[in-house]
Each structure stands twice: as structure tokens, then as C-alpha cells.
């Protein structure tokens, strides 16, 4: 119980600073909208093509948005010396990982909750369904599990904004493949049983990388 209390404190700190600055959610939302609009030009959308490429657009957008918001989760900490403060706290480094990870998860989910209806509206697709929400939740957990680890790593390198996507995108390829394929099936109105193998892959990724990141995170921010 003590562990979760500390974790929630860190998550709450991030949430509070986000509520006050609205930095991540507002900027990433605008970015998301822009990417969707640009993809729309890229595929010169007619209805039939859109149906084929929509899942790809959706997850490419969320992957890029994820990179952006994960980067922001550690950059201000580093710039304002907050990371040192966090490390001085009498909590384990794992606690910092779980706290930051939950914060990023929360922001990503809020962004997706706003972006999905926009997507539905712009592309005339039934994106809002229980299946899609499940896929989004699982895939987002996958994104933030390794994303938080890599963001903490990237912020300690010379080219912060560059290192995160280079690390993050190849590693989350299984999540992107799984999410795109599962969304394609969900949008085609397939039953849950067709989705299970894809959801299984994403869920396995989530569990494995939550554990691995939890274990190696202390090495990233050691002095």
C-alpha cells in the first residue's frame, strides 16, 4: 500500500502541473488533428480507400503523438532540475517509473478519448466501439511502458527529441502491427474471437515490457 501511495503522489504531481499548464494535452491534440488532416491529403480520400487505410492512419497518428507527449513528460523535469528533486525523494527509482508511466498513460488516454470521436466524425467510420476502446487501451499501455523508459533515457542524451523516436518506434512495431490489424477487423464488424490473437500479442507486449522497464529503469536515472 505504501508503494502505491508514493506512485499516486508522483502521478498526481504530473497531473496537477498538466492541469495548470495544459502543455502536453493541448499541443499534442493539435498535432494529432494536423496529422489526420495531412494523411487525408496523402491518400486523396475516397470512401473505399479510407476504409482500407483508416486503421493505419489512426495508429500512425497515435504513435507519433505518443513520441511527442512522452518526450514532454521528461524534458521539463530535466530543464527545471526537477529530476534531481525526484531522485532526492526517499522513494525507490521504480516508484518514479510507475508514477511517470501512469501519468503518461493518463494523458495519452485523454488525448485518444478526444481524438477518437474527431476521427469518427472526419472519416465517417464507426471508431467508437467497445472493441476499439479495448484495442486503444492495450496499445497505449504498450506505448507508455517502453516509452517512459526510453523518454527518461533520451532526456539524458545530447539530442533528446531525436533519440526517443529512433528508440521507441522500432521497439513498438509489434504493438503497431497488432493495433492496426485488430482495428481493421473491428472496423469491419468482425466478432471478438477474430481479434483475440492480435489483442493477445499486444497484451503480452504490455506485460513483458512493464516488467522489463520496471527492472531496468533504475539504471537510467542513476548518477
Amino acid at each position: 500500500m505504501r508503494f502505491w501511495g508514493k506512485v499516486i503522489t508522483i502521478t498526481w504531481k504530473d497531473t496537477l502541473s498538466e492541469i495548470r499548464t495544459k502543455e502536453i494535452i493541448s499541443s499534442v491534440l493539435v498535432f494529432t488533428l494536423l496529422v489526420i488532416v495531412i494523411f487525408n491529403f496523402a491518400f486523396a480520400a475516397n470512401r473505399e480507400i479510407m476504409k482500407l487505410v483508416a486503421p493505419g492512419i489512426l495508429w500512425a497518428t497515435f504513435a507519433f503523438a505518443g513520441v511527442l507527449s512522452l518526450n514532454r513528460s521528461f524534458v521539463p523535469e530535466k530543464e527545471q532540475g526537477c529530476l534531481e528533486g525526484l531522485m532526492l525523494c526517499p522513494v525507490g527509482r521504480e516508484v518514479i517509473y510507475v508514477g511517470k508511466m501512469l501519468g503518461s498513460l493518463l494523458f495519452m488516454l485523454v488525448i485518444e478519448m478526444i481524438a477518437l470521436p474527431i476521427f469518427t466524425f472526419l472519416f465517417n467510420l464507426p471508431v467508437l466501439s467497445l472493441q476499439m476502446v479495448t484495442i486503444a487501451l492495450l496499445a497505449t499501455i504498450g506505448f507508455v511502458s517502453v516509452g517512459t523508459l526510453f523518454a527518461a533515457l533520451a532526456v539524458n542524451t545530447k539530442a533528446r527529441e531525436l533519440v526517443l523516436p529512433v528508440l521507441f518506434l522500432p521497439v513498438v512495431v509489434p504493438v503497431i502491427i497488432g493495433a492496426v490489424e485488430a482495428s481493421r477487423l473491428a472496423l469491419a464488424g468482425e466478432p471478438w474471437s477474430r481479434l483475440t490473437s492480435w489483442l493477445g500479442i499486444i497484451a503480452a507486449f504490455d506485460v513483458i515490457f512493464l516488467v522489463v522497464s520496471y527492472l531496468v529503469f533504475p539504471f537510467v536515472i542513476e548518477e
Binding site: L149, V171, I177, W198, I201, A204, V212
Partner: peptide, 28 residues
């Protein structure tokens, strides 16, 4: 030494990712 630590983390995460990538691309 920091670079070595970071690279080690990438080496660990990357290797664990291999079977998942293989599974995903095979199904795909």
C-alpha cells in the same frame, strides 16, 4: 559509462522484443 549503460538497456529491451516482433510479423 553512461552511454554504455543506456546501450545495455537498448540491448536488453531489443533482444526481448525479438520473439514478439517475429510473432507479430508472422501473423501479419
Amino acid at each position: 559509462s553512461r552511454g554504455a549503460t543506456f546501450a545495455a538497456i537498448v540491448g536488453i529491451v531489443g533482444f526481448i522484443d525479438i520473439p514478439i516482433i517475429a510473432l507479430a510479423t508472422t501473423l501479419w
